[in-house]
Amino acid sequence: MSLVVNNITKCFSDFAALNDVSFQAEPGEFLALLGPSGSGKTTLLRLLAGLDQPDTGTVEFDGADYLKLSARDRRIGMVFQSYALFRHMTVAQNIAFGLNVRPAKDRPSKAEIAATVQRLLKLIQLEDLGKRYPSQLSGGQRQRVALARALAISPRILLLDEPFGALDALVRKDLRRWLRKIHDETGVTTIFVTHDQEEALDLADRVVVLKDGKIEQIGKPLELYRHPQSAFVFEFLGTSNEVPATVTDGVASFDGFTAPAVSPKALSGAQTVRFRPFDAQLSPTGPGFEAKVLSLLPAGSSLRLELQTPDGKVFETQHAHESEASDLKLGDTVFVRPSKVYVF
């Protein structure tokens, strides 16, 4: 029961929103489509739901050609960014909608529908709010109702468009855990779209990184983090600092010191290398890149520094509170040595 997407291309007038996109979602998998706005992720979701048709390519589910099916017949549960709850219906009526509109021969009895609604209300922990209208709910509650409504039709696949986009940070974190739990309980293949890399890495089994309508990389969160295939993926997943270096056989040489270099391909010679804020060591003397402390911010469990080199370049580094960085003051001069770099 896997979903196979092959060579999908979709153009709007002469702009290619999706360019030769192929990926596969395994049964029960939780997949994230991650990319900045304009990367084509929402277009891809709409194609899967049947709300748009691709120019070329195939979408197969369990061996069946899905592009031949209309949105109505795909049985894909979709949770919209705006939730799109039916405003004139109660929460219970919203959840029951997909069952009520089935043709008479496939429609469950009234009692069965009521039982399903009760079960789902319990699942989303809103048992007492079945009679409320969407306008009487908070954002997080609406989101959960939208999810229950999509689950009511026993979807083959669940699609979520920026599921946490409209919520505040605290609710967001809570709902994230909860969504993962629901997914694990129901076992339905889930694909969600997000532009938030933290959300994608935290939640998904695998992440599909999109850029300008093309897939940059597909992989498990840790894989993406440890072995980014492109500078885009590296930079999109977190803060990045750039420095020049000479690379030979997986080692980056700087003026007076070296660091291991991770690269998807064998590169050598003069290169721009990148390092993460926490892959940096500071010391009061050289060798290293000389820099002045521009700002010192306690960022939760660690200390975040902004350092400026004499030629104006700014590094961002991160250190433990109890480290060489904790004694620094604004304006101090330090030497920055990357301890691990990435080359693309």
Partner: peptide
């Protein structure tokens, strides 16, 4: 009001008739 609710109704399996009489018209 936009088309979101109507599109949602379609993905939930509603026919054009159902979309009009259950979603559009009540709204």
């Amino acid at each position: 009001q936009g088309t979101d609710e109507e599109v949602a109704a379609v993905t939930l399996g509603a026919s054009g008739w159902d979309v009009f009489f259950r979603v559009t018209l009540p709204n």
